[in-house]
């Protein structure tokens, strides 16, 4: 039988467009609530500390948001797939090491250091994804173990040297005084925005993105729909590794140096950005746009917390409670319950 016999292509019956249904679909598709939360927090911040409304502070908030968003980019993909990548601190640490010790101290060209980071972190991620798929193991366990091993290996390679700094070429990318094609903000903001556009196109307008979403929503059905789920898993975890490694380079560049624990805060706040943005485990609704909004929400929130004189410890308590609240909110959805 050919498609012609099945495709008479008649004039489709005119369907009644339902404005309300369309609006509802749109409201679910577009993270309206998240945008409102960001606006409310921004308004609160400006009211509380009017002095903050100057270009310097705004740039600073946006750079911190960008770093967080970059660190959470791979995590977003892994969460959409229905897993968690606990190796993120290891990747970030390795990226920071490459930026500070390899590109900085050993004066290896920055491009080579970036490439090395992508290859190592991406390779490890690919291996994790393949193992998890092949042997049906929880990514939680595999990423935790691999992350610890990578952290240890990086510290071993660093051999106690945490005083090197990334070269100027890298530092200018994330420096608050940096400019992008003459515009008064550092390139990292533009890079993250471009990443956001790229991710949106990938998730919404490509066959690969559609298959990736489908694998997250229903793994068994995806296999039976002839999606190569092993390739999806391998590539997603590879991407998560490579992106977290790159985030590590930028984080070290922004801080002009690194430490043994540079990656740790980003695991929790990165995951928080994903969840607060509204990406649910294994869901069609997940998107990187949401993570960007989540990162902005968290940065604004922590600025408010710090400006109110609360300590780092207290702000962590508040973040923890927010995560619990958000997760229990989504947990009501049947789909999420089924996974755990």
């Amino acid at each position: 039988m050919t498609s012609e016999t099945l495709s008479p292509a008649p004039a489709p019956a005119v369907r009644i467009s339902r404005p309300w249904a369309r609006f509802r679909a749109w409201a679910l598709e577009v993270p309206l609530l998240q945008v409102l939360v960001v606006l409310a927090l921004a308004a609160w911040l400006v009211t509380a500390i009017p002095a903050i409304a100057n270009p310097r502070s705004v740039t600073s908030i946006l750079v911190i948001t960008s770093l967080l968003a970059l660190a959470a980019m791979g995590q977003t993909l892994v969460v959409i797939l229905g897993g968690l990548d606990l190796a993120a601190p290891g990747y970030i640490l390795f990226g920071a090491f490459m930026a500070a010790n390899v590109a900085g101290k050993l004066a290896v060209p920055p491009a080579v250091a970036v490439l090395g980071t992508v290859l190592v972190c991406g390779g490890i991620g690919a291996l994790i994804g393949w193992i998890c798929h092949r042997f049906s193991v929880q990514p939680l366990v595999v990423t935790l173990g691999t992350g610890a091993a990578l952290t240890g290996a990086t510290l071993f390679l660093a051999d106690g040297d945490y005083s090197s700094a990334p070269p100027q070429a890298l530092r200018s990318l994330a420096s608050l005084r940096g400019t992008t094609f003459g515009m008064p903000f550092p390139p990292i903001i533009m890079i993250v925005l471009l990443c956001g556009v790229g991710m949106w196109i990938f998730l919404n307008r490509t066959a690969a993105g559609r298959r990736f979403h489908a694998t997250g929503v229903n793994f068994r059905a995806a296999r039976l729909t002839r999606i190569r789920t092993s390739v999806v898993w391998t590539l997603v975890f590879a991407a998560s590794g490579a992106l977290a490694g790159i985030a590590g380079i930028f984080i070290a560049a922004y801080g002009s140096g690194w430490s043994q624990t540079i990656g740790e805060p980003y695991l929790f706040s990165g995951l928080a950005a994903v969840l607060v943005g509204g990406t649910i485990f294994g869901s069609i609704r997940g998107s990187y746009t949401r993570t960007l909004l989540g990162a902005l929400t968290l940065t604004l929130l922590s600025t408010i917390i710090v400006s109110n004189g609360l300590s780092e410890a207290q702000s962590r308590i508040i973040f923890g409670i927010i995560i619990l609240a958000v997760v229990s909110l989504y947990g009501r959805e049947r789909h999420v319950r089924d996974r755990f």
């Binding site: 929503v217 729909t225 069609i284 789909h335």
Partner: peptide, 9 residues
């Protein structure tokens, strides 16, 4: 449900 549908799609 288990083998064919992608319910949220």
């Amino acid at each position: 449900r288990g083998e064919s549908l992608f319910e949220s799609m």
